[in-house]
Amino acid sequence: MRGTPTGRQLRLGMELRKMRERAGLSSTQAAQLLGIKQNQVSNIEAGRHGVSPERLRTIACHYDCPDKELVEALTTLTPDRKRGWWEDYRDILSAGLLDLAELEHYGTALRTAHTAGIPGLLQTMDHAREVFHQVVPELPPPEIEHRASFRIKRQGVIFRRRAPVPYQAIIHEAALRMRFGGRDVAKQQLKHLLKMGEHPNITILVIPFEAGGFPGAGQPVYYVHGPVPQLDTVQLDQAHGIVLLDAEAQLDKYRRILDRLTALSLIELESRALIHSIIQTI
């Protein structure tokens, strides 16, 4: 039995619950089919009890799940014996931040859109520190350092030697012109964006002021692709913390928002030219 389940463990349990419900089975009926107690089914679905890939396939068989691709994708959510680097921050930062790092680590592609800030995976350490200095209520210096170092360490997912994850960032021109930390920090941050955009797996697109209105009400959107579309996740930043969405209608909505924002953006070469021109004005 686990303590507090991670976001990944909760997602697996939720998907197994949905699979059971699609089969028209109660938790009691499922327990009878699987030869276990009803509370064990509940614990599995709550992410408190792990299942092996073999056990998961057995459950899917008993639930008459016809989607073999989904079942195999779900096996990738089963417990990993390797301890993720984010676990070093378990007693230091919020569970939501750790869940985000875990989500990114296992994601197959990442898409994000920001209209009033630089995406976290593209920030310099100085810029990240300044962002956390603006948090309300004010954070103590050690907390700022922990959050900034954690944010920079998350960037490893787009730099790892083996299979760096494809990453697309859409940034509004307004965000590029904000001078977090003053002139020098802002200038170095924009130069860093140009350098990051040179990596083949990283695409940086800019929405210019001339594009006019845009969907999404200016809220940062972070879309993490899973091994199959059903396991995609949207992450939103709220004043009270991180929110993860995975309902089919929500995923479809934010996919369409990101597609529309992409259409409003300058192409990659033009985006780089605009960033360079803004650097010249600082």
Rank of each mutant, 00 (worst) to 15 (best):
V157I: 14
F132T: 06
D237I: 08
A116F: 14
I202A: 04
A95P: 02
E138C: 06
L103S: 03
I204W: 05
H127S: 09
R160D: 12
G47I: 02
G3T: 10
T124F: 10
G7S: 04
K68M: 15
R160I: 09
L258T: 00
L98H: 08
H133G: 09
T233R: 12
G182K: 05
P137E: 06
V234C: 01
N43P: 08
V157C: 04
V228L: 14
N43W: 06
P5G: 15
L34E: 09
D64W: 01
R111C: 07
V224D: 00
E268Q: 09
G7K: 05
I152V: 09
D99N: 09
D91R: 04
H127W: 10
K18Y: 06
D91P: 00
A23C: 09
L56P: 00
T233G: 00
P200T: 03
V243S: 10
Q189M: 12
G213T: 13
P166I: 00
E145W: 01
T28D: 13
Q38L: 03
A148M: 12
E54C: 00
A23L: 08
F180W: 14
A163K: 14
H276L: 15
P227D: 03
A163S: 13
E198G: 15
G216R: 01
I170L: 13
E54L: 06
V51T: 07
R20T: 00
Y223W: 11
S94F: 03
L231A: 02
R260V: 03
A249Y: 11
Q32D: 14
E268C: 05
R161E: 15
D80K: 10
F132Y: 13
H225N: 07
A211P: 12
P5K: 12
S149Y: 03
P166T: 00
G7F: 02
H62Q: 14
T75A: 02
Q188K: 15
R256H: 11
L269P: 02
L121Y: 10
Q29S: 11
I278T: 11
H62P: 00
T6A: 07
Y222L: 08
V41S: 05
E45G: 03
S277F: 11
A175P: 04
V71K: 01
I59K: 02
D88S: 12
T281R: 11
